[in-house]
C-alpha cells in the first residue's frame, strides 16, 4: 500500500513539474509587455531596458524558468510589480475564500446526494426515485454557469434573499455575515456536484444491491440499514469518487466564475485582475498554486480509492 502511494506521489511530482513548465510557457506567450504596463506607454526605451534587466526578462527563457522554479522551492513566488504585494501574500488572502466555498459546497453536495441516492436505490422506479432522477436529469441539461448567473440574478439581485455582489466580509471580521454571503455561491456550486454524485451513486447502488454478497448479508439477519451503509455503500462509491476527482477542475472553475460575478476576492477574482493588468508573476503564481491544489486533491482521492477498495493497491 505504501509502495502504491509512493508510486502515485512520484508520478504526481512529475505531473507538477510538467504543469509548471506549461504554465510558465503559457504566461510568457501572453500578449502584452509587462514593461509597458509598469512604466506606462510613453516611457523611454532605455528605462524599459533597465526594467527588463531588473525583472530578469532579458535572460534566456530557460534560465528564467529555473530561476522561478528555484524561488518557488524557497517559498518565494515573486512580488507583483503592480500592487507590490508578494504573490504568496495574495494567495494567503484569497485561497481561504475558495477553500470555504468548495468545502461548503462539497459537504452540502455529499449530504444531499448520498441519502437521496440511498433512498432512491432502495426502491428503483419508486415515486422518490422517479422524481429525483427526472429532476437531476433536467439539472444536468443546464450548464453550471447558467445556473450561477440565474441564481445570482434571482436571489441576490432581484429578491435580496442573499447579499448582492461586492458585499463580501472576511470570516475573521464577521462570521455570520461571511457565511450569509457565502451560502448562495456554495449552494450554486453544489448543484452540479449533487446531480453527478446522485446519478452515479444511485446507479452503482442499484447494481450492488443485486450482488450475491448482499443476499449473503441479508441471510445473516443484518438490518437493511446496516447492509446499506456497511455492505453496499462502499463498493458502490468508486464511480462517485472518480467523478469527484474529475469534478475538482470544474469546481475550481465554477468557484472562479461565482467569485467574479459576486466580486468575492478569492483566487478567481485575483487571477482575473492579474490577467487584465498583465501582472505575469501573479498570474504564474496563482495558476501554479491552483494546479498544485488540484493535483494534491487528486492524490487524496487516489488514496481514498485504496481505502474504499483495498484491491486497488494490493493486486
Amino acid at each position: 500500500m505504501a509502495k502504491f502511494l509512493l508510486k502515485r506521489l512520484l508520478a504526481l511530482m512529475g505531473i507538477l513539474l510538467l504543469v509548471s513548465l506549461g504554465i510558465f510557457m503559457l504566461v510568457h506567450l501572453l500578449p502584452g509587455d509587462p514593461t509597458t504596463t509598469i512604466l506606462g506607454p510613453n516611457n523611454t526605451a532605455h528605462n524599459r531596458a533597465v526594467l527588463m534587466q531588473q525583472l530578469g526578462l532579458n535572460k534566456p527563457i530557460w534560465s528564467q524558468y529555473f530561476l522561478w522554479l528555484g524561488n518557488i522551492f524557497h517559498g518565494n513566488l515573486g512580488q507583483s510589480f503592480i500592487t507590490h504585494q508578494t504573490v504568496t501574500n495574495t494567495l494567503a488572502n484569497a485561497f481561504p475564500i475558495d477553500l470555504e466555498l468548495i468545502v461548503i459546497s462539497q459537504v452540502v453536495a455529499l449530504s444531499v446526494s448520498i441519502p437521496l441516492a440511498i433512498a432512491s436505490a432502495k426502491k428503483p422506479n419508486g415515486l422518490l426515485d422517479r422524481v429525483s432522477t427526472t429532476t437531476s436529469f433536467a439539472l444536468l441539461a443546464l450548464p453550471p454557469f447558467i445556473i450561477i448567473v440565474f441564481a445570482v440574478l434571482i436571489f441576490s439581485i432581484h429578491f435580496h434573499v442573499f447579499p448582492g455582489p461586492g458585499s463580501y466580509v472576511p470570516f475573521s471580521q464577521d462570521p455570520i455575515s461571511n457565511l450569509h454571503t457565502m451560502i448562495l455561491p456554495s449552494l450554486v456550486l453544489a448543484i452540479g456536484s449533487v446531480v453527478i454524485y446522485f446519478r452515479l451513486l444511485r446507479g452503482d447502488l442499484i447494481t450492488t444491491l443485486q450482488e450475491e454478497f448482499i443476499v449473503m448479508a441479508r441471510s445473516k439477519g443484518l438490518s437493511n440499514r446496516y447492509i446499506m451503509w456497511r455492505h453496499a455503500l462502499r463498493p458502490s462509491s468508486l464511480s462517485l469518487l472518480a467523478a469527484a476527482g474529475l469534478n475538482i477542475g470544474g469546481l475550481v472553475a465554477g468557484a472562479f466564475v461565482v467569485e467574479f460575478l459576486l466580486a468575492i476576492p478569492g483566487l478567481g477574482y485575483a487571477l482575473v485582475n492579474s490577467i487584465q493588468q498583465v501582472d505575469y508573476l501573479a498570474v504564474q503564481g496563482v495558476t501554479l498554486f491552483v494546479a498544485v491544489v488540484v493535483v494534491v486533491l487528486n492524490f487524496i482521492i487516489d488514496f481514498l480509492f485504496t481505502i474504499v477498495d483495498p484491491r486497488i493497491a494490493r493486486e
Binding site: 450482488e211 450475491e212 454478497f213 443476499v215 449473503m216 448479508a217 456497511r230 455492505h231 462502499r234 463498493p235 474504499v308 477498495d309 483495498p310 484491491r311
Partner: peptide, 12 residues
Amino acid sequence: FQDPMTSLNPVV
C-alpha cells in the same frame, strides 16, 4: 452460497 467470490463482500 455457490460462488464465494461473489458471496463475500470484496471490500470488507
